[in-house]
Write a protein that binds this DNA or RNA. Structure first.
Lengths: 148, 148
DNA sequence: AGCGGATGTCATGCCATATATTACAACTAT
DNA sequence: ATAGTTGTAATATATGGCATGACATCCGCT
């Protein structure tokens, strides 16, 4: 199992919006072309990002605008925004019917839950350390290398 | 997206095998009853655990035997054993066709890869800190509380 | 040797979810 | 008003997890 590509798509989209912000017509179709997915996917991802307050859009008129500077948008923000993992259950999917008549079955959940949450927290903390600014910078570096 | 319940099933199975080791007929059917899934699922999970050297089984005769003491079986071992996440791609699923003609599209992968791997590593390190012995101990505690 | 009880594994079906795609109403700017 | 765009619903397809039945293989025991 893997975390949905919606996450990497979202990072890509935000980076591209910033990178091409002075260009005409950075619309969902253009972005979809860069990402390599259907424009509707881009629009739904952008919807989620808007709901999360990461960017702003306007119906009818082309182009989204970031609501925060790049270095204040962390991977965690994006990851949460696009529902990369199930909100209720968390990162780990627990088997749903351990036998309550079995001493192990009726206690396994309690024994594992807190520890799994800790693992998840640790991963999420790592995501908080990375910002889109880091990515944008790396990409500019790579582009500079290309033309060298 | 979530990590397969095969993982929590595997932890449950190992714990149960140890807990009921002195009982008769701790076979896949019995374990399936405790976990609340089909016996075939238990058998495939056990197969993976055997391949990973975590336990030993014998065709025909009932019951699996752990190959290591509980405190030497980490969550990470189990997680890797049952293929909780895709081996090749890792925890994050990258969108597959970023546009090579777009400066952002052709560099986004490079810019994100190492960082995402770092996130994954950090999660896996957390998994290494937890052993089945921790779980078994917690469960025994809970059981003691029940009868108090 | 033969039998009963297991395991190991395959094949199939079902269901949930991710992504693709079409369609269209709502909206903006010119 | 018109062209261009967003927001979103509806539908289709593909993939993967889990359930389930079937069965060959194997072990222990009598």
């Amino acid at each position: 199992m893997q975390i949905t590509s919606r996450f990497t798509i979202a990072v890509h989209v935000i980076t591209a919006i910033e990178y091409f912000k002075d260009m005409d017509r950075v619309n969902s179709e253009f972005l979809a072309g860069s990402v390599g997915v259907n424009p509707v996917i881009v629009r739904t991802v952008i919807s989620k990002l808007r709901e999360a307050g990461i960017l702003k859009t306007q119906r009818g008129s082309s182009g989204a605008v970031l609501a925060k500077p790049l270095d204040q948008i962390t991977f965690y923000d994006v990851y949460k925004a696009v529902d990369s993992v199930d909100k209720e259950e968390g990162l780990f999917h627990f088997h749903e019917q351990p036998n309550p008549n079995c001493p192990v079955g009726r206690n396994i959940h309690k024994a594992m839950d807190e520890r799994l949450k800790e693992v998840q927290r640790s991963m999420e903390n790592e995501l908080k350390k990375i910002t889109i600014a880091d990515i944008a910078e790396d990409i500019r570096k790579e582009i500079r290398l290309e033309s060298a």
